[in-house]
Amino acid sequence: MTATEAALRPPAGAGGRRLAWRPAEVVERMAETRRATTLVLDVPGWPGHLAGQHVDVRLTAEDGYQAQRSYSIASPPKAPRLALTVERLEGGEVSPWLAGEARPGDRFELRGPIGGYFTWSVAMSRPLMLVAGGSGVVPLMAMLRHRAASGDAGRAVHARLLYSARAVADIIYHQELQRLSVEPGGPEINLTLTRERPPDGWQGFDRRIDAPTLAAAGVAPEMDPDVYVCGPTPMVEAVANALVGLGYEPARIRTERFGPTGEG
């Protein structure tokens, strides 16, 4: 059994293979941008997770009404606390509470970790190419944090992130990304703005991620990277198609789409 498989197995005594709903308590909240908030959680019995996985969050009103949504895990596998970064969706039902209302001491339920598909571990060792749109950066940040926490093994993995945001103020983890990028062996970070005209001295791109952007900022297809693309559906599809057109191996392109559903 590999470490990956071990992490995917529920702990002994979890009551079979079904994922249990667990109480989670907010320990800390941090504003990331005007719309995104990170919640640091205490989750007793959390079995551990892989970078890229998500949780289902369930909120229960006093009259028993429940609403459930999925959120990516922002913290790396061995972090002492689980962290979620949630972007508030206008007209949404769960994200406004998580990103706006939640305070230390508040409690809700979650289950996870979920999903073995969109996951990465330093043990995979091939070059790592990450492409994010908006809050799609969250599971990719868990991967970069995992890489940074893995010492020499992490530094040995060539890594690049290409991240598109609407405006500078919408860039989640901006300072941390800058800090990581200047560390010895740190990942190469490329940013692009899609709505706002870039400020003076802007080093990044100023367009939606397209084939030329990927060719300029990605890990070359000849290096056979593992590619992870996460963002809103139209962005993910445009990027995935462009990657195939550029000669990336389709089987190594992993995608995760998210955004508002009909009921927010």
């Binding site: 994922l19 998500h54 289902d56 999925s70 289950r111 996870g112 979920i114 999903g115 598909y117 969109f118 809103p232 559906t233 139209p234 995608t255 995760e256 789409r257 998210f258 955004g259 508002p260 559903t261 009909g262």
Partner: peptide, 12 residues
């Protein structure tokens, strides 16, 4: 605007 999600979101 609505997004069509993928099977990742049905993981739970």
């Amino acid at each position: 605007e609505r997004s069509t999600l993928d099977g990742n979101a049905a993981g739970g």
